[in-house]
Amino acid sequence: MNLLNRLTKGMGREIGLLVALFLMIAIFALIDPIYLSPGNLLDIVDQSTINGLLAIGITFVIITGGIDLSIGSIMAIVIVSVGWFLTKQGMNPILAIILGILIGAVIGLFNGLLVTKFKLQPFIATLATMSAFRGVAYIITNGWPVLNIPQNYRDMMDGDLVGNFPISIPILLAFAIISHIILKKTRTGTFVFSIGGNEEATRLSGINVDFTKMVTYALCGVGAALAGMVMLARLGTGEPAAGQGYELYAIAAAAIGGTSLAGGKGSILGTLLGALILSALKTGLVVIGVDSFWQYIAMGTIIAVAAYFEIIQSKFSGFGKRLSGKR
């Protein structure tokens, strides 16, 4: 019991999310037991990988009080460039993947530059690059999709590891674990939280705020690059139109997971659970046969409900303020 208490200290939000996830699964299973089949459960996780990778990346940016609307477009650039490396250049897939990650990081740094050196508001800066990056993706392929992605690459990013267990899940977990460590164990992680809490006080503590922000946008770009490369492997073609609107579900996953859009609050585990909840809901609605138009309404509702729970929760934990906390 003591160990359980220690493990769960400061994790009220995550435990609540886990309960919500199990409740949701239980309800869908009651309506249609097929939902509980191993194949379907695996599907839920599998469907959450792309959104999960995007959402983990954007969690860094949101905790600093920023936002990145351009991640869908970053995905597209990485998709068509990696596709081009593989098909036209015949590049070694491992090299292509490394280059893809680098491209994501560099594009992210560009966003960071607009936000820090040029002092654009993150929303406006990334709204602009959302459009501009999309244009870049179209220009790279002249508007055509990149076809015939080689099978060895597809196996590497989305093949089956054992049985039906897709390799994309360990990729997501690896990125999540690394991100978690950065956020909780490193200096940069502490600065991410302190910037979100009070940027001026952080600067006056002799910390290079601009550098830390650049790092968060770069990590966000890396998340988008990984998401894009999983998608490229899954579909086998590289569409320059891919990833449109994905930023919204990534933000939703982070918000459901308890990341505050005002900055200063959030966790990788919460974001992961947020992505899983969205995926479980979507899969469940398909399984029980809800019309796809209604699915949009259900997704919207769950986002609003999650945000409302956040408010209630903070109200009941001592006048909305935490007395003490542990990271």
Binding site: R187, S194, G196, G197, N198, A201, I207, S324, G325, R327
Partner: peptide, 20 residues
């Protein structure tokens, strides 16, 4: 607005400028 950071603990605030 300039001194401490509201979402950090005492230990984190005190360590902030010298985490190195």
């Amino acid at each position: 607005t300039q001194g401490f950071i509201h979402n950090l603990t005492n230990a984190e605030n005190m360590g902030l400028a010298s985490l190195e």
